[in-house]
């Protein structure tokens, strides 16, 4: 489904790369450990994480991720936005927990990677 639908459904706020919101997302992976994320081979993947630092965006860059949802009200920094814009990665801030947003996305039909 389109990233745009998904953002509206969860009630997240898009911090950058709104022009990429028509991208398709098929599955999602939730982790605060980037090396776990880097083992995922699926395409059209969305990352859900509580790790709001530059390495989360780097991980998305290397893994060709579509978007990152930052949970628990973690704030995205200017550095992160700059790097995300270079690579067209949609950054989304979300006030609730990782469990809550995972449940919402699951009910919407976003698939787990295994």
């Amino acid at each position: 489904m389109k990233l745009k639908e998904l953002v509206e459904y969860i009630g997240g706020s898009v911090v950058c790369c709104e022009e990429c919101l028509d991208r398709e997302v098929e599955c999602a992976f939730a982790s605060d450990l980037m090396s776990d994320v880097l083992t995922v081979k699926s395409d059209k993947l969305l990352l859900i994480t509580g790790l709001a630092n530059i390495q989360a965006v780097r991980t998305a860059e290397m893994s060709d991720l579509q978007a990152i949802v930052f949970v628990r009200n973690k704030r995205v920094s200017e550095d992160m936005i700059r790097l995300a814009q270079e690579n067209c990665i949609v950054l989304i801030e979300y006030p609730g927990t990782m469990f809550r947003v995972s449940g919402l996305l699951y009910s919407l039909g976003v698939k787990p990677v295994y």
Binding site: D32, M34, S35, D36, L38, T39, T49, A56
Partner: peptide, 15 residues
Amino acid sequence: EMGFGAGMGLPNIKD
């Protein structure tokens, strides 16, 4: 704290 330390890096490089 930086988001690393899963012990997955080296096996993933090999993979």
